[in-house]
Each structure stands twice: as C-alpha cells, then as structure tokens.
C-alpha cells in the first residue's frame, strides 16, 4: 500500500521542547548546586550530599513498589508503611540473634549478617504482601475511598501486631562492627554505612530499570501501567502481574525497612508511617507510576532534607512540603508521570 503518512517523517522537536523534556533529570544536579551555593563550604556540602543521596536511595527502595502498584492497578496502599516497619523488626530480630557475626571484625561476616536479615525481612514482607493483596486489597479494587480506609486500617492492625510480638518499646539496632564509623577524605565525612546504602540503592535502581526495559515481564509492566485493559485484550492476565508486582514491592519495602533501621540505629512500630510520609512526597513529586520519576524524587527529597537539616534544622520536613508544592506548580502531575494520560 502507498502509505501517505510514512513520507512525512516525524519532525525532530525544537530544542526548547527537548530541553523541557529533559528538565526533570536536571533537578537533582540543580538542587545539589543550589545546596553548594547556600552552604558555601565544600566539605560540609560533600558530607551532606552523600548523606542525602544515601537517604534518597533508601526512600527510593521503599517507594518504587508503591508507585508501580499504583500505576498498574490504580491502588493506593497505605499499608505499605506496615511492610517497612515489619521488615525492620524481622531484620532486627535476625541481626540481634547474629551478634557473633555483627560483632566480628570481618566485613564478610558483617555483610553476611545484613544480607541474611534482608532476606528474612523480604521473605516476611513479601509473604505478608501476598496475604495483604488477597485479603485486604482484592475486595476493594477500583474504589479509592475504600482502598485508603482499608489499607490504613491494615496499617493500624499491623502496627499493633508489632507491639504484640516485639513489645511496646523501640529497639536499638546497632550497625555491624565494620559498618560503623566513617572515612574522612578531604574534609568530607564519608560514613561507611551510607556508602553501602548508596551502592545498594543504585544497584536496585539499575536492576529494576534494566528489567523494566529489557525483560518481557518489564515490558508487560510498562504496558500495564499505561493501559491495563489493552494488555488484557492482548491476552495477558494483568491481575496476576499485579500480584507479582505487589509482592515484589512489599519485599522491597521490607528491605528498605531493614536498611533504614540500621541507618537510624533504632526501630519503632511507627517508623513505617513516618517514612510513608516521605514515600508519598517522593511518589507525588516523581509522578505516580513512574520508577524513574520516583528515583529522581527520592534523591531530591533526600538532598533537600539534609541540606535544610543543616541550614535550618527546624523546618527540615517542611522543606520537603515546599519542594512538593514547587514541583506540582511546575508540573501538576509530577516530574515524569507514567501513562493514564
């Protein structure tokens, strides 16, 4: 056939448009430069930037599942906070049982203990996520109001169950021996644990992105976020895909919980709800359903929290609200909203 439209090639968008499309990616370096100007001290800035990146990576780990769950099935899960807390408590139980490993002067043993704790936490929260999806969320598909109420109820019950099993008090969670302390390089304090957090977060981001782009499952997830009904019409069961993503997202929340617990060196049943606030800010900033947007949002929130924590400690959390407001004024649907046009 003679296709009239094929001759008219797609015009390359003007430079201004291309810059505009890339603008979300420049927000992180932009914020870092702004931080450098305001802090005006390179080594302090370096310390804070590393801390901000570490915090951002951890938030990203916890937020990525939530944003995909929303993108895929339009489900907003407040119970995600519960997975964070439970992951932290399960991980802490493992770590506190392995004091022989965590106390040893061996990086391998230390990391082994952390790894075991992470695996245990992910298994626990992944399994719990599966249960949660079946019992709590499945009956309320498509009903936002009930979803919010029911998952919030689930969060309350989960918090109480933590109290039931682990007692009412917060539990101190010391870092393993070799992950304590820091190196100092050119005045910049490089906390060892933060390096681990950055490495782990970056690895998860790269892995997640790679599987989304290069695997068939990832292809299905991306398509499902954009138009789940059409994916079904092509013969795929989106519901099953969703359960899988939900379980994976819950497991990542558990992982994030362990890492955050070691970051703060203390865990409480309420930590999940507190982190959930940050996770929501990140997901909104990034654009619901977008993993890349979520990553950018998480780094922005992490950097912002650390810079303002230094510049004006009393308004640190308020600064993230401000960040959210500014970004929503600029892009009402977040930095890189996915699908559901």
């Amino acid at each position: 056939m003679t296709d009239q439209t094929s001759d008219a090639s797609i015009p390359s968008p003007p430079l201004a448009d291309r810059l505009k499309a890339q603008a979300p990616y420049w927000t992180v370096p932009g914020l870092a430069v702004l931080g450098l100007v305001l802090i005006a001290d390179a080594s302090t800035w370096g310390t804070l930037t590393l801390a901000g990146l570490a915090m951002g990576m951890l938030i990203f780990i916890m937020a990525s599942g939530l944003t995909l769950v929303f993108g895929l099935m339009d489900v907003l899960n407040f119970g995600h906070g519960a997975f964070i807390s439970i992951g932290a408590f399960v991980g802490a139980t493992v770590l506190l049982a392995l004091t022989g490993w965590t106390g040893a002067d061996s990086l391998a043993l230390n990391l082994g203990a952390v790894l075991l704790a992470i695996v245990a936490a992910m298994l626990a929260t992944g399994g719990l996520g599966w249960f949660f999806e079946r019992v709590i969320i499945k009956p309320v598909y498509g009903a936002h109001l009930k979803q919010i109420l029911v998952t919030m109820g689930g969060l309350i019950v989960a918090e109480e169950l933590i109290h039931l099993f682990w007692g009412p008090n917060q539990i101190p969670l010391p870092r393993p021996e070799m992950l304590k302390g820091s190196w100092v390089a050119g005045g910049v304090i490089v906390e060892k644990y933060r390096v681990l957090a950055v490495v782990l977060g970056a690895a998860i981001f790269i892995g997640l992105r790679w599987s989304l782009v290069h695997t068939r499952l990832g292809l299905l997830i991306r398509a499902g976020v954009e138009n789940g009904e059409m994916v079904e019409a092509l013969g795929y069961r989106v519901r099953r895909l969703f359960v899988l993503v939900f379980v994976a997202g819950s497991a990542l929340a558990g992982l994030g919980g362990v890492m955050w617990g070691l970051y703060d060196e203390i865990i409480t049943a309420q930590m999940g709800l507190n982190i959930l606030v940050l996770v929501f800010i990140v997901v909104i900033i990034g654009g619901l359903g977008s993993v890349e947007g979520c990553f950018i949002g998480a780094l922005l929130v992490g950097l912002m929290a650390n810079y303002t924590g230094f510049l004006a400690p009393k308004v640190a959390l308020g600064s993230n609200i401000l960040l959210m407001v500014v970004i929503l004024m600029w892009r009402p649907r977040g930095l890189l909203p996915a699908g559901k046009g």
Binding site: L219, E226, A233, L234, G339
Partner: peptide, 21 residues
C-alpha cells in the same frame, strides 16, 4: 481487538507494541 482509541502503548516503541501482540 483494535479498540476505538487504538490502545497503542505510547511509551513503548513500535517494536515493543508488536512484541506484546
């Protein structure tokens, strides 16, 4: 099924759209 709104996945490449089908 070719729906009224065409149901094309805009964020996916043409190849990926075909691959899913």
């Amino acid at each position: 099924y070719v729906p009224e709104n065409m149901g094309v996945f805009a964020a996916l490449t043409v190849r990926e759209n075909m691959l899913l089908a």
